[in-house]
Design a protein around this nucleic acid. Structure first.
Lengths: 150, 150
DNA sequence: GGTTTGTAGTTGCACTTGCAACTATATGCA
DNA sequence: TGCATATAGTTGCAAGTGCAACTACAAACC
């Protein structure tokens, strides 16, 4: 199996992908901080737990969805729990694991973060692309995401 | 000025953008580590300094190109310098700054990293998109990159 | 049942990053 | 010239991250 070299266009796509995502990421992080709000990683976890509703989510499920490594997530949840934004509940079906549930305060924080996050996305994406282009971008990126989305 | 909310498609584009870039980033980092090679951030800096050739680059220029914050870059260059992959040269035109120059060894490391990095890009991008799609993706992302590219 | 192997999650340690403060030089302006 | 302000880069400290080792439970196998 020989090492395949990427085309010029693939290199351009990749470098721009990285650039765009870090630029916007930094910008949104800054907006959040300016508003005294927590970082994006908190949002990512909270939103998943929120979607799971009263069922809650196992840590490994959150890990899969957010792409955060488990050890990292373990400590992030420590922080969220300390702020009472989520709570850990011992899992009846699997004695090894926890169920993570969002609290009222957690939902509240989500609500306060979203306007900032959302307007960052709006400006970053729709500020320079037409609606059809946004759709096309979303479709192209869909093809690129490997494995367990959803 | 009211807070603009993003469209569903914009949200999808953004979440997939983040997902794709982190997935591939993680994958390439792992490949590099498996080969006993340094992390991607080293490559990013080295390639910029390499492109600048014997002119060298100021740290703030590298910072602009790579989006690494200056304090971070300062210490990254410490590490690169310790490994003799770059060298700092006091700048004659501006007594505050350094010129960063790549060394033979630095160029050598770039050469060893590229096959791994390149094949990661190839698989990650061209593994699931047709050539026209890659081009289209690159063009859409070009429109999204704000400011000082080059 | 007991033993091996796998998975969920946590923790210690080293390293990296962010933040704010700091030094040093450059630039603008009276 | 002399002073105020801005920029380049570094550093101390706190916080976050990766890695590998570890505990605890589960599942498969005998």
């Amino acid at each position: 199996m020989t090492t395949q070299r990427p085309s010029e266009n693939a290199i351009a796509a990749w470098t721009r992908l990285v650039r765009v995502s870090t630029q916007l990421h930094v910008k949104i992080e800054q907006s959040l901080k300016n508003q005294g709000l927590p970082p994006l990683s908190w949002y990512d976890v909270l939103i998943e737990v929120h979607r799971a509703g009263s069922e809650g989510l196992r840590q490994f499920e959150i890990s899969n969805k957010t792409l955060l490594p488990k050890h990292n997530l373990s400590r992030l949840i420590d922080r969220l729990e300390k702020e009472k934004l989520v709570r850990r509940q011992t899992c009846s079906e699997d004695g090894r694991g926890n169920l993570i549930l969002i609290t009222e305060e957690g939902t509240e924080v989500l609500k306060r973060m979203w306007p900032v996050y959302g307007s960052g996305i709006h400006e970053g994406i729709e500020g320079s692309l037409e609606p059809e282009e946004v759709l096309m971008l979303a479709e192209l990126l869909e093809k690129l995401t490997t494995g367990s989305r959803k």
